[in-house]
């Protein structure tokens, strides 16, 4: 399996990452090496095998519907890079 430049660009876009041309080429070639190494997984027959997502099979625990553990707004927003009127501020989303 090897990955084309256009595919690499699409993946980078989905991951919200950007690279200059040289770095992109370097990553792409490493990527291809890794993928070809990974391709040996395809040798294993896995028909009817249930994918294992978590090592143990417990059922989802459920929480009581109770309001608690809220953080006061000041502590919450202290970590934020940009705040206005106690709201998170980001560059314009539309337009």
């Amino acid at each position: 399996m090897s990955i084309k430049k256009s595919e690499f660009d699409k993946v980078a876009h989905l991951a919200a990452l950007e690279f200059d041309e040289d770095r992109a080429l370097e990553y792409q070639s490493q990527f291809n090496k890794i993928l070809s190494y990974f391709d040996k997984l395809k040798e294993i027959k896995t028909d009817n095998v249930e994918p294992l997502v978590t090592p143990h099979g417990i059922a989802s625990p459920l929480r009581k519907d109770k309001v608690e553990n809220q953080i006061d707004r000041e502590s919450l927003l202290e970590s934020a890079p940009d705040v206005k009127d106690s709201l998170y501020k980001v560059p314009p989303v539309v337009g």
Binding site: D65, V67, N69, Q70, I71, L76
Partner: peptide
């Protein structure tokens, strides 16, 4: 519900800006 789907912050509709937020719903 009183609290959110995956965190225990309030679902109250009339609260002030970012008042019903826990670290879980802010994705800390």
């Amino acid at each position: 519900t009183q609290s959110k789907c995956f965190s225990s912050a309030s679902t109250d509709f009339n609260s002030g800006h970012n008042e019903n937020v826990s670290l879980v719903c802010a994705g800390f």
